[in-house]
């Protein structure tokens, strides 16, 4: 299996005075786990079903955080590819909740307006949130159509969409929460304000 590159190439130099010394501590606190327990055994990378689509394997991302390479960690694609299937955590000999670290890095990337390595995945998540905000529940057809509208990929996957429609798997009308005002007021996190 082809594994992504190691976090730092031997030719690359990490300049100690430029790294964020408090990064690991911050990530630990927010994710309620301890990434300093990671001794780079690489079990997580061997088990991860998505490692081939990532730019850094999970242990590579942890290494970036350990080194204090904040920007690299927040701008990598891995944090967006991870679906929190927890395969890595179940194989980690030190029981690190790696998915929680990915969640934290993703939130930080949004809060700090870091460059998003997988804008298509972010766009999809935002569509799901829009659906929850509007209806209190997810409306699959609406999400798929708006996602296509925004990404412009109208013809990607049309066959799958049609097959799902023909099997009545996509409802035309959304299922709704009655007290939707209770849901709406949850949707005011500040990072949703348009970036500069």
């Amino acid at each position: 299996m082809s594994q992504p590159q190691s976090p730092t190439k031997t030719s690359e130099v990490v300049i100690i005075s430029e790294v964020d010394r408090y990064f690991a501590r911050e990530v630990n606190r927010r994710s309620h786990t301890d990434l300093n327990r990671c001794y780079q055994c690489r079990s997580c990378g061997n088990g991860c079903p998505f490692v081939e689509s990532m730019d850094y394997p999970p242990y590579g991302v942890i290494r970036l955080v350990q080194y204090g390479l904040r920007q690299k960690a927040l701008e990598c694609a891995t944090i967006w590819i991870c679906v929190s299937c927890h395969t890595c955590s179940s194989q980690c000999p030190n029981a690190i909740d790696i998915a929680a670290i990915m969640d934290t890095l993703r939130s930080l990337a949004l809060e700090e307006r870091a460059a998003i390595a997988a804008p298509d995945i972010l766009a999809f998540h935002l569509e799901v949130l829009r659906s929850i905000e509007r209806y209190g529940r997810t409306h699959k057809l609406g999400i798929m159509l708006r996602h296509k509208l925004l990404t412009g990929q109208w013809f990607k996957d049309v066959d799958v969409g049609l097959r799902m429609l023909s099997r009545r798997k996509l409802d035309l009308m959304p299922s709704r929460v009655k007290a939707v005002n209770e849901i709406n007021r949850l949707f005011l996190p500040y990072w949703r304000v348009k970036p500069r």
């Binding site: 679906v83 929190s84 969640d103 993703r106 939130s107 949004l110 972010l122 999809f124 998540h125 935002l126 799901v128 949130l129 929850i132 209190g136 529940r137 997810t138 929460v177 009655k178 007290a179 209770e182 849901i183 949850l186 949707f187 996190p189 990072w191």
Partner: peptide, 22 residues
């Protein structure tokens, strides 16, 4: 009665607090 989405992967991916509230 009147249940809502649990937050799905997306809320927890972008904003764990929102997922928690949902």
């Amino acid at each position: 009665e009147d249940w809502n989405c649990c937050g799905s992967s997306s809320a927890y991916s972008l904003d764990p607090e929102l997922g928690f509230n949902l």
